[in-house]
Amino acid sequence: MADKVSKLAEKGIVIFSKSTCCMCYAVKVLFKELGVTPMVCEIDQDPEGREMEKALMKLGCNAPVPIVFIGGHLIGSTNEVMSLHLSGQLMPRLLHP
């Protein structure tokens, strides 16, 4: 399962999300407002979602969701994404993943 998560994470901009999570929604809206269309993996709608969540935690994710990868690099959860955005460091990463 870790291989599947890693392969998905390499695909540009990826958000591992749950469809009912308000923090996931906020991150997806932020990306949309920035004009970015990330690949979104709704792990609560995936039959292998539980295993994907465990694999994400093993990769060093400190929160279950949302988990954001840009260019195969783990960015983190809502706090890390918002911190990068507020400091002006998110857009350059999104433009050059």
Score class of each variant (00 low, 15 high):
Met1Arg: 10
Lys4Gly: 00
Lys4Met: 06
Val5Glu: 01
Lys7Pro: 01
Ala9Pro: 04
Glu10Ile: 02
Gly12Leu: 10
Ile13Ser: 01
Ile13Val: 12
Ile13Phe: 04
Val14Trp: 05
Val14Tyr: 02
Ser17Ala: 07
Thr20Ser: 15
Cys21Arg: 13
Cys21Glu: 10
Cys21Gly: 11
Cys21Lys: 15
Cys22Met: 14
Met23Ile: 06
Cys24Glu: 00
Tyr25Asp: 06
Ala26Asn: 11
Val27Leu: 11
Val27Gln: 07
Val29Gln: 11
Leu30Asn: 02
Thr37Asp: 14
Cys41Thr: 06
Cys41Leu: 08
Ile43Trp: 10
Asp44Asn: 14
Gln45Phe: 04
Asp46Met: 07
Gly49Leu: 03
Arg50Cys: 01
Glu51Tyr: 02
Lys54Arg: 13
Lys54Thr: 14
Leu56Arg: 06
Leu56Asp: 00
Met57Asp: 01
Met57Lys: 15
Lys58Arg: 11
Lys58Ala: 08
Leu59Asp: 00
Leu59Phe: 10
Gly60Val: 02
Cys61Thr: 08
Asn62Tyr: 08
Pro64His: 12
Val65Phe: 06
Pro66Arg: 05
Ile70Ser: 06
Ile70Tyr: 10
Leu74Phe: 02
Ile75Ser: 06
Gly76Ala: 09
Gly76Thr: 07
Ser77Gly: 15
Glu80Val: 09
Met82Ala: 10
Ser83Cys: 04
Leu84Gln: 07
His85Glu: 13
Leu86Met: 14
Met91Gly: 05
Pro92Gln: 10
Pro92Arg: 04
Arg93Ile: 15
Arg93Met: 15
Leu95Thr: 14
Leu95Arg: 15
His96Gln: 15
Pro97Glu: 11
Pro97Trp: 07
